[in-house]
């Protein structure tokens, strides 16, 4: 029963990923793509947590922590590049 709820959640999250992917491919500006990329990263963090639940392995959560951290740094780096070059 709970498993089914988790799978539905994963499917809905997958649709969100596809929406973000559409915005990522379409643009039109670089900043739009960064927003889409940031959303995709957070969706991926959620996916990693769902996979950790399904597999019952807590070690995957460390991957989620690092992924959230790297995405933050990535967005900051791109924004600074847009502002005045690195």
């Amino acid at each position: 029963m709970v498993d089914i709820l988790i799978y539905i959640a994963a499917a809905v999250t997958g649709i969100a990923f596809l929406f973000a992917l559409y915005r990522f491919l379409k643009g039109p500006t670089a900043a739009d793509r960064v927003v889409a990329f940031d959303t995709m990263t957070l969706v991926t963090v959620v996916f990693i947590v769902i996979i950790a639940l399904a597999e019952g392995r807590g070690i995957y959560l460390d991957v989620a922590v690092i992924y959230a951290l790297l995405s933050f740094l990535g967005v900051i780096a791109v924004a600074r590049y847009l502002e005045r070059g690195l």
Binding site: V2, V12, A36
Partner: peptide, 29 residues
Amino acid sequence: GGILMLSGAAFLFLAGLGLVRMPDLFNRL
């Protein structure tokens, strides 16, 4: 837990929908 995860997924879905529908960058953000 299941209900919370489902509502979380629903908000992520809305975020995706917002990204597609909103007219300019700031609204998408």
